[in-house]
Design a protein around this nucleic acid. Structure first.
Length: 416
RNA sequence: GUGGGUAUGGCUCAGUUGGUUAGAGCGCUAGGUUGUGGCCCUGGAGACCGUGGGUUCGAGUCCCACUACUCACCCCA
């Protein structure tokens, strides 16, 4: 227990952290090219933010939040997703008074959901994400989707399926809900228990139910009930996606579990041995900022699961190779050489080379073995008698070639 | 929250119908080469067999409970 990480959490070990760093680097690079800057918000927020923002009736808020009272008796919640906190910061710091749109991203942002962990499901997981406030044209919907595709591709994750849908605005969705409820009401007795519960909370979800969907194929569809504005937006999004050569499919079942979404919703799905896996999900949230007490400002964003990206890389064998630990490893023979080695290693590092020497006082053979395992490109051998002559041995490990180099010329020789 | 599976050195696993000192491969470490890695050979360290109870002369092996991990459902990244 003591030496076991809590359920649903994961360590990223020193030998594996480069995987995360690669993904993080690509995220920063690609986002910066499109004018996005990083935002960092707290890991916890007032519980009310998520109740209001994500929505009181959602599963995430109702049963998955890590909520506790702090010593000041404030109800605090570990953030279950990234958007609400970003929106809160946008309002609190009056970013709406800056030039809009306001584009931001976050990298390996921890998120917490109390769920039973399973494949690709953790209690603490990490998301990359982008949020854009104050851009209402569908061109930004397409931009944001393109960014997600680019980040995934940059990490060797392709064969992606982009599924898009529109769930309308509060006006047309309310009208649709009425239509849908009128259709569902007489059929309620034949539906499963959870669907009868959904009928009250979120009737659109019933259409997504594996058990009942088949019986409801003639149900009215949200897409047929969009108002003119929402329909126009959805059409435009599609023409932008076509212009960008991004293939997509329209999937009317994409509803998303968070209440703030309006109009565009989308998921990027990869197919794995265990079936489809959503690596990125997002959408437009035009009412969120106002709902939280800010000025009427539209928004759009997505979240991308870092652990899921890594899973997909592993499953497809497209994981990047681990970088070598060292450029140069210094082997020493005897105490004088050690003393010199400590100095040399520091010089090498100052010259921008990754360098180290044996700190375990092992045999020369063991030192070479270690250098080999660390994939060092060069091994420098320091020995008393050679040092006296002002000379060291430099070995190219890949080529298995070794030569004598004067101590003074060593660093230039290596950098050459 | 509901249901299935699993639990043996650091890792992956073997362990016959319950029977003496619990094995292998990989990894780690030392040596074979008194100054040199990757291959090969030899040695060494490392396991209260998940925890607690029960059956039995005897339990890694059978039974029960618990815990952890894992997979699926719900939902989602």
């Amino acid at each position: 227990m003591l030496t076991q990480a809590p359920k649903g959490t994961q360590d990223v070990l020193p030998q594996d952290s480069y995987r995360w760093q690669r993904i993080e680097d690509s995220m920063r690079r690609i986002a910066a090219l499109a004018g996005y800057r990083e935002i960092r918000t707290p890991m916890f927020e007032h519980t009310e933010l998520f109740q209001r923002g994500v929505g009181d009736t959602t599963d995430v808020v109702q049963k998955e939040m890590y909520t506790f009272n702090d010593k000041g008796n404030r109800s605090i919640t570990l953030k279950p997703e990234g958007t609400a906190g970003a929106a809160r910061a946008f309002i609190e710091h009056h970013l709406f008074a800056e030039p809009l749109p306001c584009k931001m991203f976050y990298v390996s942002c921890p998120a917490f959901r109390y769920e039973k962990p399973q494949n690709g499901r953790l209690r603490q997981f990490h998301q990359n994400g982008v949020e854009v406030f104050g851009a209402k044209d569908a061109s930004v919907d397409a931009e944001v989707i393109a960014l997600a595709m680019d980040v995934l591709r940059a990490n060797g994750i392709d064969g992606l399926r982009l599924a898009v849908n529109s769930i309308g605005c509060p006006t047309c969705r309310a009208a649709y809900h009425e239509k849908l409820k009128a259709y569902l009401e007489p059929r309620l007795p034949s539906l499963c228990e959870t669907c009868r519960d959904r009928f009250v909370r979120n009737p659109m979800r019933i259409l997504d139910c594996k058990e009942d969907a088949a019986k409801l194929t003639d149900a009215p569809a949200m897409l047929d009930s969009l108002c003119d504005d929402c329909r126009d937006h959805f059409e435009k999004l599609q023409s932008y996606l076509r212009a960008l050569d991004i293939p997509y499919e329209i999937d009317a079942r994409i509803v998303r579990g968070l209440d703030y979404y309006t109009k565009t919703v989308f998921e990027i799905i990869t197919d794995t041995d265990n079936g489809p896996l959503t690596v990125c999900g997002g959408g437009r949230y035009d009412g969120l900022v106002e709902e939280l007490g800010g000025p009427d400002t539209c928004g759009i964003g997505w979240g991308m699961g870092v652990e899921r990206m890594i899973m997909v890389q592993d499953a497809r064998g497209t994981a990047p190779e681990a970088p070598a630990l060292y450029d140069v490893f210094v082997c020493t023979l005897g105490e004088d050489a050690r003393l010199e080695g400590v100095k040399l290693v520091r010089e090498l590092r100052a010259a921008g080379l990754r360098a180290d020497l044996d700190h375990a006082a092992r045999s020369l053979k063991a030192q070479f073995k270690f250098a080999g395992k660390a994939n060092a490109k060069y091994v420098v051998t320091l020995a008393g008698d050679e040092l006296a002559r002002g000379v060291v041995r430099l070995r190219d490990m890949d080529a298995s070639e070794e030569k004598e180099v004067s101590r003074g010329a060593l660093i230039n020789e290596i950098k050459r």
